[in-house]
Structures are given as structure tokens and as C-alpha cells.
Design a protein around this nucleic acid. Structure first.
Length: 847
RNA sequence: GGGCGAUUAGCUCAGUGGUAGAGCAAUUCGUUUACACCGAAAAGGUCGGGGGUUCGAAUCCCUCAUCGCCCACCA
């Protein structure tokens, strides 16, 4: 057994330990256990973007998953953690387009095939580096099952899904208003839009007999409907369908009055004109009343010929000019320059969204949502923390149909084939075939690709081989728990739930565990541009993977919505790892001793208790609580008290056995160092697959009482030293009536010499367990005595106050509170009175 | 506009009805058989404000304030 170095150096062990695990096959689910009928534990890695870099959010999420996975593996369950990556169409598309731009080319110039080829090369080059970063953290994924959303097999699943939805009538093609991003030239889903508040002048114009307000005059060319609330008394004289002629930007137009309840009577004049082609609510009104609609702005954000003299202008540039023209026509009534409104931006690339009416593919959500809502409502799927359940149900109930095609080249092509030349024309109806194979005849594939979330919604089962009835699918579906951030609760989690229920006829996962968002310590988002980002790999290199994991867990609780990350926690965890290391060193040095004492019984009972608590906490996903409990137990009970005792007396065999249990309990949290120390202790089997079992040990009240007295004596002596000014280094004599527990250890730990008979100047000091300790020290100065008196006087005052308060409480409790509560209080009062007595006695001896 | 969360020691946070806890930082002391990435001791808080329920509130209820997030969306 080679001696351990004085400090734990993670770098020397992490990679080799990881290799041992991987070579052992421990990361793969144990087929034997599966055959025995053991219920498997399965987690799907939320697939990170293949070209992504590990950030603190990943580190937190991956640590949570790894802890659960390692714990269940040790509990003897066949355990599968399925890794993989997502093709991340939009961000990768942008990267490739930017690359081409740098080369002075456009994607149109090189063509679709060359573009895809370039993308594949890019994936190959940068691909999966994020998975290697996960390995640095110690993630025990089954890498033999690694999946990518663009795998041939996965593409089949995507096509199958489209076909299946289409056959059932869930997928339809329709002209609907969608979020168009002129910058990236694609549609964007509602969920991927962010709103930014912006100041923009709000113009009020005369529109026939009405006044209307708008922040976007450039959309108003085609407005020929004026809408008001049917109950608005101001406009009672106008009937739905009335028409009138009004002078407008490019001459007179005929407008029609529409009454619709969606109009807010309190806003402005309570009247508005609508632009259905470029506004979501206007579109809804137009649909309700079957109104005509017209495109004003093209797909590049420029005005169309309907704008007359403004045609071809960029909307931003045209806006003030149009307002000017209306003013010159005498139609401008007022301008509110301080007006604020929300501008819709694409999350990716921040292009300003211009809603457009386009023929698009949609998934009808009305049927799909039903089962998903039911699964949440009857707790087939549980949300942790539970408050997300109602959020999920609420969102699901109000979900809109899902626009699933995107106008980019990168991604899964739609399995849709158009008769040549019909796509995008008014000849579309009846001229397409939905099939994964190209049909006979003159057909060309739909140029669009599917929303990335369409494919990732299949992740829990497509990775297991669906649509084929594979062994993996049979064995590992549904999965056990999904660990995720709340920002993709709707975007991804909700979609996995309804697609799993629809396609595999079962929930995709039992529990949804939603972890907090990791923020910088000052509460800001972690971002490179703000300089608030922290690279987990740097943390691993500086402090070790185990410290990074443990520090994160020590700080985390699932009750939090956000976690202000303090890197100090990682440093503290590194100290803890070093502590473990040095405990092992101490145990190496101790000579064997087998006589068991009170301390041994106490620590064994405590270790068993802790193992039970940790198990219960992990089962309830209270990972942070478990980490904190373990650290406190190891440091403040096992190391600070028990090991100090075992240096002098007690059983080293017990010490080693308890430490082995500690190592085992800590393994899910700090896998590398525990594995190293496990091997160092002479175990031939790997810890990663060792059973999560602990020797049961009954709590002996006698041992616990002995320990409490012992601790109080040690603490009292230490305090008395300070109070009386006796140097820590020196030995003091204390008087014993021979009832002090563990006298030899006491002498060593408290630096005292126990004498049978008192002599010289006696001093006394109260014990927290009741009673006083008598000590003899020749050289106590008058000054120290005064200090001691002051100190005891203060304590006496505090206790007296407490006694009075407690007496009052007992008085007021009488007859109102339950009897046992009163009894509890009275016991407390007795303890306080005893303490006061002890202090008084000590004070009496301080002459 | 609707909702969720947070507000406790200088900082990051535990603490779901019984007189407030930890880590880090700061203070004092200490190197006897692991660890200075250590040990010991002491200090530090009217638990965001106000009101209520209760014998008793950091904890339950109401209200206000501040911060953060989510959803809807303003013509």
C-alpha cells in the first residue's frame, strides 16, 4: 500500500480513475440484474448542442444526474444514463453562414449539398467536445450508446413521427400568421421570441370619423377595417359592417366598421385599424370576421408596391417619412414621443420579428395536449418542485398549434414531396405526397427543415431505437427521471410528454426534476460579454472535479429558482476533499487497536443514522441537503471528535469501517477521490459498483450520553483557559471525582492533567451538560480572574433573562397548549435553572 | 396585465409554530501522532416594512416595498 501524499491532488487521479470505470463496463446497464427482473433506473441526458461548450448550468445538471445514476447503480439497479447531442440547427446554421460570409460566399452560391457537407465536416471537427468535457466532471454515461439527432436511425424516427401525425390528421398545411425573422430568413416559434421594451413615438391619426393610434404607421397602407368594442358607448351609432370613405396616405380608401370584443375600450380612443398580415391579434380578428388581408412588407423587411412612393424602402427608414406625409395631409393629430412598446426579437441572432402570413406546416395540438395534461393532473408525471405542475398544465391548456417547418437548410428535411413547381404557389392543394421515400414521377422534396424541437421531442424513445420494437425500448422506456432547466419546460419537456404518450403510448419519464438557474454571485446572468461567466473546466482544473461537483451541490437546493453561484463553495469543497484524504492518511498511521469504547459505539450509531438519512434524502431528490449533512457529519463529528479520540483509545477497526461507509456514502457526490481511497483501503472491487449497504447499529443512549459529557468537559476546559488566560499549550490540573469519561483521551484532547485531590487555587467552570468542572492553575492573574467574573456574570444575566421569559411562556401556555408541550418547556426551564446554579457556583469560587 | 420565487450575520445560503444556524471573510489563540486546503475560542442578526391569527411567528394569513424570473401582450 503506497503512502498517500500530504495533499490530495485531483490531477493525479481523476483521468485514470475515469478510465478504470469506463473499462470495467460499469457505465453500461447490468444485463444480469435486468434478467433478474430488477427495475432499471434510466436517465436521458438532455442533449446539449453538439458544437456547444460546457457551462455552469450543464455542470450543475450533469452533477445532479450523475449523483442519481451512481446512487441507483450502487443500489443494485440496472442503470442507464443515455448520452447524446443535438444538431442545433439554428445556431449551427448561423456559424456556417458566417463562415461562408468570411470566405466571401453565400449559401446559395455553393448550393444545398455543399452546404450540408460543410456542416457535417464542422460537426466532425467540433462535435462531441462537450461530451468529453462531461467526462472531466466524472459523468458515468453509457458512451457505447451515444446518440446524435442526425443519426440515420434517428432520422427514421423523425420521418415516422411526421407520417404518423399526418395520417392521424394532426399535421396540416395552412396559411397562418407566423413569426418571420428577416435577418435569418426563417420562421421562429412563439417560444423562441423575446420581447424588448423600446421607446417609439405613438402617432395618432385621423381616419375618417375616427382617431386611431399607432407606433407602426408603415403597416397602415392596406388598413381598410376599423375595429371597436361592440359595447363601447362612444361608437354606438356605428354598426358592424358600416362603410365610409377616408383620406389616407396614398389617397382615399373605403373602410369598414368591425365590432370585436378583443378591443380594449380603455386604450387610446378605443378604436383601431388592423393589419392582419403583419400582426398576430389583427390576424385573429380578421379570421373571426373573415376579412381580407394583404401583405405590406416583404420578407426582407422592405415595403411592397402597395406603399406607392415608399415601395422598396426599409421599414425603419420609411416610418418617419410616412408620418410626415400624413402630417402634410393634415391627418396627424398628435405624437406621444415617450411611448414605450415591446419589440419582438428572435432569441437567436436578435433579428426583429416581422409577422407574416405564410403557408406553413403545423401540428394541431388540440388532441395531443389532452393526454399530456391528464398525465400531469393525475401525477403520472411528477414535477419537482411541485409548483411547476400547475405551470405546465396551464401552458398546455393554452398551447397554440405548432409551426414545425423552418426555412433553413440545416436539419431534418420534411418527408413531403411536391409536384415540381407547385410548392409555394396557389397550386399547392393536392399536389404533394407525404412519404419518407421520393414518390414516382416528377416530385421534389419540400425545401424546408423541421424545427429542432420536433426531433428532440422524440429523444427519450428515438434514442432507444423507436420506431422499431427494440430490446432497449422494451427495457428502458419509460425513463425514470428527467433533469432539466425550467427555460425548456415548454419548449422541450412538454413536447416530449405529448409525443411519448402519442407515439409510444406511455409517459417518457416518471419525474421531472427542475433545477435552479445558475447565476453569477451578484445575481447577473452568467455571460461572457458581461464578464460574469465561469468556465467549469477551469474550476475542475483548479480544484478538481469532485470539489466542483460537491461545491455545486452543497450550495444547491431544488426549492431555489436561481442559484447565485459563489466559487468560494468550490474552494471549500476542495478543502473537504483534502480533509477526506488526510483522514485516510491518519488511519494509515494508526496502530491497530480493537478495544471498543463509548466513542466507537457512538460513531457507529451516528454513521448508520446518517446513511439512512442520506438514502432518504436522495430518494426525495434532496441532494443539496444530503451533501451538507455528509460534510457536517464527516468533519464535525467523525474528524473533529471521533478521530481525535481514536488517536488515544477505542477501536481502529471501527474507525476504518466507519470511514469505509463514509467513502461509500460520498461516492455519488465525489466519485474520484472516494474510488481512490476505496482502492487504497485494500478493496479489490471498484467502489462504483459496490453495494449501497451499511451495517445497522442501534443507538446506545449510554454511549451518546457519555460522549456528550466528554464533549462538554473538553469544551469547558478550552473555554475556561481563554477566560482565565491560561495558555492553550500548557497543561492544567483538573479535579476529578473519578467519574469523568475517557480520562486519557481527555488529558490529550483538552491538555489537562486529572488529579484525584484538589490543591492550590481551585477554579470552576460550568459544563453544558450540567455540573461544573474544577480546575487548578497556579498562575491565574487578577486581571484574568476579573475577566472570568465578567464573563460569568454576563452569562448569568443572559440565563436569568431566559429563565424569566420561559417562566412567562409556561404561565401563558397553561391550559392552552398541549400538555406535552408544556412539559417540554418545563424541562427546558429546569435545564436553564441548573445552568444558572452551575454558573453561580463557579462565580462563588472566583474570589 | 397575470403568475412564480427571493428578501435571515459583511458575502453565499440553511432553517415550514417554541427565545436564530452553517460556510467563507474579519478577531484572538494554538503546531501534542492526518490535514494551515488545520484546530480551538469568542464576536457578529429588532429574520425587508406594516398589520393579523396564536399562549407563542423567521416560520401561517393579509398588505406594501425592493430584486429576479416566467407567461400574456399593449393597437
Amino acid at each position: 500500500m503506497p503512502a498517500l501524499s500530504a495533499q490530495y491532488s485531483p490531477k493525479d487521479h481523476e483521468q485514470s480513475v475515469y478510465k478504470k470505470w469506463e473499462d470495467s463496463g460499469a457505465f453500461q446497464p447490468n444485463e444480469e440484474l435486468l434478467k433478474q427482473g430488477k427495475k432499471p433506473f434510466v436517465v436521458m441526458l438532455p442533449p446539449p448542442n453538439i458544437t456547444g461548450v460546457l457551462h455552469m448550468g450543464h455542470a450543475l445538471q450533469d452533477t445532479i444526474m450523475d449523483i442519481l445514476v451512481r446512487w441507483h447503480r450502487m443500489k443494485g439497479e440496472p442503470t442507464l444514463w443515455m448520452p447524446g447531442t443535438d444538431h442545433a440547427a439554428l445556431p449551427t446554421n448561423k456559424i456556417i453562414v458566417d463562415q461562408l460570409f468570411a470566405e466571401g460566399k453565400t449559401k446559395e452560391e455553393i448550393g444545398r449539398a455543399a452546404f450540408i457537407e460543410k456542416t457535417e465536416k464542422w460537426y466532425e471537427k467540433t462535435g462531441a467536445q462537450i461530451l468529453n468535457q462531461m467526462k472531466r466532471l466524472g459523468a458515468s454515461c453509457d458512451w457505447t450508446r451515444n446518440r446524435f439527432t442526425m443519426d440515420t436511425k434517428y432520422v427514421q424516427a423523425v420521418n415516422e413521427t411526421f407520417l404518423s401525425y399526418y395520417k392521424k390528421g394532426y399535421i396540416y398545411r395552412g396559411a397562418r400568421i407566423v413569426n418571420w425573422d428577416p435577418k435569418t430568413q426563417t420562421t421562429v416559434s412563439d417560444l423562441e421570441i423575446e420581447y424588448k421594451t423600446e421607446k417609439a413615438p405613438l402617432y395618432t391619426f385621423r381616419y375618417g370619423p375616427f382617431e386611431i393610434s399607432t407606433a407602426r404607421p408603415e403597416t397602415k397602407f392596406g388598413d381598410k377595417y376599423v375595429v371597436m368594442h361592440p359595447d363601447d358607448p362612444r361608437y354606438a351609432q356605428y354598426a358592424h359592417g358600416d362603410t365610409f370613405t377616408a383620406p389616407w396616405i396614398n389617397g382615399d380608401i373605403t373602410a369598414t366598421v368591425i365590432k370585436d370584443e378583443s378591443v380594449d375600450m380603455k386604450f387610446g380612443t378605443g378604436v383601431m385599424t388592423i393589419t392582419p398580415w403583419h400582426d398576430l391579434t389583427d390576424f385573429a380578428i380578421a379570421e373571426r370576421h373573415n376579412l381580407g388581408m394583404e401583405q405590406i412588407i416583404d420578407f426582407n423587411g422592405k415595403l411592397l408596391p402597395i406603399a406607392g412612393e415608399f415601395a422598396g424602402m426599409n421599414i425603419a427608414a420609411a416610418r418617419p417619412k410616412i408620418a410626415e406625409k400624413l402630417e402634410s395631409l393634415g391627418l396627424l393629430i398628435s405624437v406621444d414621443a415617450k411611448y414605450q412598446h415591446n419589440v419582438a426579437l428572435n432569441d437567436r441572432g436578435k433579428g426583429v420579428i416581422e409577422p407574416q402570413v405564410m403557408r406553413q406546416w403545423f401540428v394541431d395540438m388540440s388532441k395531443l395536449k389532452e393526454e399530456a395534461i391528464a398525465a400531469a393532473e393525475n401525477d403520472q408525471i411528477r414535477f419537482i418542485p411541485p409548483r411547476w405542475k400547475s405551470h405546465f398544465i396551464d401552458w398546455m391548456e393554452h398551447v397554440h398549434d405548432w409551426n414545425i417547418n423552418r426555412q433553413i437548410w440545416l436539419g431534418h428535411r420534411l418527408p413531403v414531396w411536391w409536384k415540381k413547381g407547385t410548392h409555394g404557389t396557389d397550386q399547392e392543394d393536392g399536389n404533394f405526397v407525404v412519404s419518407s421515400e421520393k414518390p414516382e414521377g416528377d416530385y421534389e422534396q419540400d425545401p424546408d427543415t423541421l424545427d429542432t424541437w420536433f426531433s428532440s421531442s422524440l429523444w427519450p424513445f428515438a434514442t432507444l431505437g423507436w420506431p422499431d420494437a427494440t430490446d432497449d425500448l422494451r427495457n428502458y422506456y419509460p425513463t425514470s427521471v428527467l433533469v432539466t432547466a425550467r427555460e425548456i419546460l415548454y419548449l422541450w419537456v412538454a413536447r416530449m410528454i405529448f409525443s411519448g404518450l402519442e407515439l409510444v403510448h406511455d409517459i417518457p419519464f416518471r419525474d421531472v426534476l427542475i433545477h435552479p438557474v445558475v447565476l453569477a454571485k451578484n445575481g447577473q446572468r452568467m455571460s461572457k460579454s458581461l464578464g460574469t461567466g465561469i468556465d467549469p473546466i477551469e474550476l475542475i482544473e483548479a480544484h478538481g472535479a469532485d470539489a466542483t461537483r460537491f461545491g455545486l451541490m452543497h450550495q444547491m437546493s431544488f426549492d431555489m429558482q436561481q442559484m447565485k453561484f459563489d466559487p468560494e463553495a468550490i474552494r471549500a469543497a476542495q478543502n473537504f476533499a483534502n480533509k477526506l484524504w488526510n483522514i485516510a492518511r491518519l488511519l494509515d498511521e494508526l496502530k491497530d487497536r480493537r478495544q471498543e469504547g463509548a466513542a466507537d459505539m457512538w460513531i457507529r450509531a451516528r454513521a448508520y443514522q446518517v446513511s439512512q438519512e442520506v438514502g432518504a434524502m436522495l430518494a426525495a431528490y434532496k441532494i443539496g441537503e444530503a451533501a451538507r449533512l455528509l460534510q457536517d457529519f464527516v468533519w464535525y463529528e467523525f474528524a473533529d471528535w471521533y478521530l481525535e479520540i481514536v488517536k488515544k483509545e477505542g477501536s481502529t477497526a471501527v474507525a476504518r469501517a466507519v470511514f469505509a461507509d463514509i467513502i461509500k456514502m460520498l461516492h455519488p457526490f465525489m466519485p474520484h477521490i472516494t474510488e481512490v481511497l476505496w482502492e487504497h483501503a485494500g478493496n479489490s472491487e471498484l467502489l462504483i459498483t459496490s453495494p449501497w449497504e451499511f451495517a445497522e447499529y442501534a443507538v446506545s443512549q449510554e454511549a451518546i450520553d457519555t460522549m456528550r459529557v466528554f464533549q462538554s468537559v473538553v469544551t469547558a476546559v478550552r473555554s475556561a483557559r481563554i477566560v482565565f488566560g491560561i495558555p492553550m499549550g500548557s497543561v492544567v490540573e483538573i479535579y476529578s471525582d473519578a467519574s469523568l469519561p475517557m480520562p486519557e483521551t481527555l488529558e490529550a484532547l483538552a491538555r489537562v492533567h486529572i488529579v484525584a485531590e484538589a490543591g492550590g487555587r481551585m477554579r470552576s467552570y460550568p459544563l453544558s451538560t450540567g455540573g461544573v468542572i474544577m480546575l487548578y492553575a497556579a498562575e491565574i492573574t487578577e486581571e484574568a480572574l476579573k475577566k472570568g467574573r465578567d464573563r460569568l456574570n454576563t452569562r448569568a444575566q443572559t440565563i436569568t433573562a431566559k429563565i424569566q421569559a420561559t417562566q412567562q411562556i409556561i404561565e401563558s401556555m397553561r391550559g392552552r397548549a398541549p400538555e406535552e408541550k408544556v412539559q417540554e418547556k418545563q424541562n427546558e426551564l429546569a435545564r436553564l435553572q441548573q445552568q444558572l446554579q452551575d454558573i453561580d457556583m463557579s462565580r462563588g469560587l472566583l474570589k
